[in-house]
């Protein structure tokens, strides 16, 4: 039974695309056949983050309009088996997405035996974001530890539970909260909202906390999914998120202030 998961946030720049890429890569690395769809028509980014920008021939809108088949548009990831990317169109806008079109693409992916379909939502609460969440079974709501991001996540949670197809049919979308760009030092210093405060405000089960990390930026710029960087804390945190999503009980990591290493510690490890 395939599952549709939307990665959404309301606010822009919080790490939706990074999370979509890392999460989909992580699922595929665990052996699940996974597709990740970029819903940000007109502001295509997922292909860059995943390092497939030079391999885009057809896109999501082409498939919806019947200008190409789904097989032609899906890009197979070269590093992770079972991972496929459906890029957005860069030359169109969000109006190119129709409910029927999106539904037919998702249904075709389900028929093709995909275990997980990850929908990378654009920012905002307009059509693109709405289309990305409409068919979702589960949602990963990405939040940064600051008040405007938390409020926007709250808003999108409301939309999920009122305007998604599951909600219209009387069901619910299963919610997961993912806090990204978390910096324990700055939480301690009072510059950032703490993890517990965010969970209390949003009252959604926490699936993970991704520490602020330079490796995310490096990974994005080089087109490598950060989850594949086993050295980085962010990569490890994403691996934990995937494990928790699949039902494993993994304790949270990287949420406490790291003790400052002394000179000799630095020198001798």
């Amino acid at each position: 039974m395939s599952k549709v998961i939307v990665v959404t946030s309301g606010k822009g720049g919080v790490g939706k695309t990074t999370t979509s890429a890392a999460f989909a890569s992580g699922l595929a690395a665990k052996g699940y056949k996974t597709a990740v769809i970029d819903f940000d028509v007109g502001l295509r980014n997922l292909d860059l983050i995943m390092g497939v920008e030079r391999r885009v021939v057809y896109d999501f809108v082409n498939v919806i309009n019947g200008e190409s088949t789904l097989k032609q548009a899906l890009i197979r990831d070269k590093r992770v088996d079972n991972l496929y990317i459906l890029p957005a169109s860069q030359t169109r806008d969000k109006d190119a997405l129709t409910t029927e079109g999106v539904e037919s693409v998702i249904n075709e992916l389900k028929e093709d035996g995909f275990d997980y379909i990850v929908c990378d939502s654009p920012a905002g609460i307009e059509k693109g974001a709405f289309m990305a969440l409409y068919f979702a079974d589960e949602a990963i709501v990405v939040t940064n530890p600051e008040v405007s991001s938390v409020r926007d996540s709250d808003r999108i949670l409301g939309i999920l539970q009122s305007r998604s197809r599951a909600a219209e049919q009387g069901g619910t979308v299963k919610e997961h909260l993912l806090i990204t760009r978390y910096s324990p030092d700055r939480v301690e210093g009072g510059d950032m909202l703490g993890m517990d405060d965010i969970v209390e405000i949003l009252s959604v089960p926490l699936i993970g906390v991704i520490p602020e990390s330079e490796s995310v930026l490096q990974a994005s710029n080089s087109g490598n999914s950060v989850v594949l960087d086993e050295q980085s804390h962010a990569g490890q945190a994403y691996t934990d998120v995937v494990a928790r999503f699949l039902g494993e009980d993994v304790p949270l990591r990287f949420i406490d202030v790291q003790p400052k290493k002394g000179f000799f510690k630095k020198l001798f490890g």
Partner: peptide
């Protein structure tokens, strides 16, 4: 029984309202 989120409105006509979850600022 679910949280009332930012941007959501709930109206109980002709009666009382009971919420078994938190409500958000902006609701």
């Amino acid at each position: 029984e679910r949280p009332v989120r930012s941007g959501q409105q709930v109206y109980a006509a002709n009666g009382d309202m009971t919420i078994l979850a938190p409500t958000s600022s902006g609701s």
